[in-house]
């Protein structure tokens, strides 16, 4: 069996396990719905009191962020926690001797969590956002939207692997991983428009906007809310692709070295 066959089997097994923990799925859905409610109200209140020269409705702006991070936040969390959970259940040894490396295990976890969150997002979030008019998708824009989501997904696999490699060395980095995710969300413009940084730090916004994930969210807002294609989108996609490839390449190299080190230290099965 080739690598992709093993990856597929591991993804299916993860989804089977996720389905057995139904309460966790209910919590995930509840969490997202609460996010939507909170950000809708926040956006609406802020919009009535301040920002006048802002192109989007702030509630729409925030809800696209919710949609974006609904797809990647849970997958990141699940992936970073995967080693800890597998170790607690004592399953890593069996996976290793059956040719499922730590990298494969984590990538499979990211895949299966993506399937899980896409399903939740498509059932619970997309219809809500569609119904309240946040997302008005022109069908011709869908290939671009999917491309941007795909590149963000690749980038986030790399990020998740890199953070998990810290997990292999230092163990139980749950709080650090949460902090890192929080920083990523801030940098991506989840909580406020990145352009607002210029109010306090002139010129900083342009630099932050070059970060692949921030660029993706920025372009997705243009596409999803305004139905507009950014004039430099080809160049932007090229830069984002480069960032995603560098990120995942670096993550795979780091992770393979960490796996070897960990096998030498004798900590791999307990990670």
């Amino acid at each position: 069996m080739g690598y992709f066959g093993r990856l597929k089997s591991t993804v299916v097994r993860n989804l089977q396990v996720d389905l057995k923990y139904k309460f966790n799925l209910v919590i995930d859905v509840a969490w997202l719905i609460l996010d939507i409610i909170a950000f809708t109200f926040l956006g609406a209140i802020v919009a009535t009191t301040s920002i006048k020269n802002f192109e989007y409705n702030l509630a729409d702006f925030l809800l696209v962020g919710v949609f974006f991070w609904a797809l990647f936040g849970r997958a990141y969390d699940d992936t970073v926690l995967a080693l800890q959970e597998e170790a607690a259940r004592g399953t890593i040894g069996f996976l290793l001797v059956n040719n499922i490396s730590i990298r494969t295990l984590l990538i499979a976890r990211f895949f299966s969590s993506t399937v899980k969150t896409i399903t939740i997002a498509m059932i619970f979030i997309f219809p809500i956002l569609w119904a309240i008019g946040v997302i008005q998708v022109d069908l011709t824009l869908i290939p671009l939207i999917i491309t941007l989501f795909f590149l963000s997904w690749i980038f986030m696999i790399g990020v998740s692997l890199l953070v998990s490699s810290l997990n292999v060395i230092f163990k139980r980095i749950g709080v650090l991983a949460s902090l890192f995710l929080y920083a990523l969300k801030i940098a991506s413009g989840y909580y406020f428009p990145v352009e607002a940084l210029d109010l306090f730090f002139p010129g900083l916004a342009q630099s932050v906007l070059q970060f692949p994930l921030t660029r993706c969210v920025y372009l997705l807002r243009e596409l999803l809310i305004l139905g507009r294609i950014h004039p430099n989108i080809a160049n932007d996609i090229l830069m984002i692709s480069l960032g995603a490839v560098i990120c995942i390449g670096l993550a795979l190299i780091v992770m393979s070295q960490i796996e070897k080190l960990s096998a030498k230290w004798g900590t791999l099965e307990f990670y």
Binding site: M1, G5, R6, V12, Y21, R89, F94, I100
Partner: peptide, 18 residues
């Protein structure tokens, strides 16, 4: 060990898959 929430059939199917 193995994922204890899975059945014997699901577990064997997973390992036969990989």
């Amino acid at each position: 060990s193995f994922q204890k929430k899975l059945t014997l059939r699901e577990t064997l199917k997973f390992f036969s898959g990989i």
